[in-house]
Design a protein around this nucleic acid. Sequence first.
DNA 1: TCCTATTTGTAAAAAACTCTTCAAATACTT
DNA 2: AAGTATTTGAAGAGTTTTTTACAAATAGGA
Lengths: 287, 287
Amino acid sequence: MLTSISERLQDRFDSLTRAERQLVAVITENYPVSGLGSITSLAEKAQVSTPTVARLVQKIGFKGFPEFQAQLRSELEATISGPIAKHDTWAEAVPDSHILNQFTEAVMSNIKTSIGQINTETFDQCCALLADNKRAVYVVGGRITRAMADYFFLHMQVIRPGITHIQAISNAWPHYLLNIERGDVVVIFDVRRYENSTLKLAELAAAKGAEIILVTDQWISPVSRYTKRVFASKITVPSAWDSSVTTLLLLETIIAQVQQATWPETRARMQELEAMFDDTKFFRKFT
Amino acid sequence: MLTSISERLQDRFDSLTRAERQLVAVITENYPVSGLGSITSLAEKAQVSTPTVARLVQKIGFKGFPEFQAQLRSELEATISGPIAKHDTWAEAVPDSHILNQFTEAVMSNIKTSIGQINTETFDQCCALLADNKRAVYVVGGRITRAMADYFFLHMQVIRPGITHIQAISNAWPHYLLNIERGDVVVIFDVRRYENSTLKLAELAAAKGAEIILVTDQWISPVSRYTKRVFASKITVPSAWDSSVTTLLLLETIIAQVQQATWPETRARMQELEAMFDDTKFFRKFT
DNA sequence: TCCTATTTGTAAAAAACTCTTCAAATACTT
DNA sequence: AAGTATTTGAAGAGTTTTTTACAAATAGGA
């Protein structure tokens, strides 16, 4: 296996010349950042000439400076990224090339990117809106996002009263709009291909003074023109389809947060539900 | 004080254009290493043109790409001299203690554990079964898993004919059973609290000689007594609720794999669907 | 539907960088 | 101390990278 650059430099240090040692000292001192600039700047910092640098990297086995730098970058990547990116933990059981691995890696990366970009203030504000029982909540899903909207609705329904699921795709949605009042919350799901009916619905809801929360993809649905509360998830994966995993993660986090905020009031609802399950014997006893 | 590049990018994210957002996603994903190569390689990775990169860095206040890179290096220097481990991408923007972080970390860990435990042979076999058009496929969801079953159904419906969604909770399911034949595939979703009707349905389906695929949680539904094809996901998170993220990831991977396996036959179906969308103008043009 | 504004990429010019050549400087040997 | 071998940097050739100018494509509005 290829050894790291700093190792190679250390190994050959004895056989190097004065100018080269000077150079190695500079590279090692602030490793590996100092090697990431231009060959010129590195030479200047070490007070040697550029040919000296070029010769050194060739000496330790690279075709040229750019190749040396590329290696440096890839080492850096390995250093910086945590165990997740390196898939050390789970790659062992599954061959790298298997789709399970490829897919999981892509999803992990999507999650990291998307969650990192979320503004926590926006997040907290949205949760506060959803936890406010005085505001009615409407959940709007489209063709693709139907399942996500349904999942969100299902949980929120247990947590709080006054929640309604609107299928933006159906003909019935204008009727729901009649009930929307100023201050109500409308959670809109819209990913590519963005749906015209959803956009129209958003426009009307905004006109009625509703607070709109938009859950969308990295390309951002045009619904965003009616609200500042936007959650954009990265959804591209090695598949003919887009991934909803990041979106689901976001939803579950929102659910957890709202649940926590409303716990005192929700507690009773939850217990009632539990009791109902026990009575009906609809479910098996929790194992 | 000068703000960091990733901050600058995220601050202005809303006001950026499509190509620029693509670019930001790539930069952020493997930050900051991806920005340390040439402008050309960065542009290629993000699938945008080099001028787009040049324009973006100017937009966020640099004279040119080299200056941008210099700043990136100096940030890196500051980061590296400190604890490297702290550098997780999402940890920068989100305080450690925030629920977004706790939740994401828990989910990541669930994913790692669950995907690692999957037997690739079982996985491949299941995909092969689902890709076989000669077998009818039935998808069975319960109360909690309804949304997951629906999501799976929605995608499979596009990929292949002969797929049916059964709500195990409804009264209608015995009728569906009549149609099940030897060799048909029944995909059953069952997480705690395991539902009696689902178990009964599995028993009957097994008696008719159906191939059962079970998607369940870490405690494994009793349906497992009727099949060896079991996918168990870890679903515990810091919440009053269980997480479905890992399950969804599994489903999407199966969808991707089946899609790939049946591509030649599916291609036509997909194109027809696309054409329909274009005709109906139901959706907006993909941005 | 057409028109305007914006966005995006192509292509070529400008700039920067990398590498090679060669001669001067240095170190080493006899 | 002189000769030889090695090391080093200046300079420029050749390459790549960055930037700019402009035209095509796209989106949004009338």
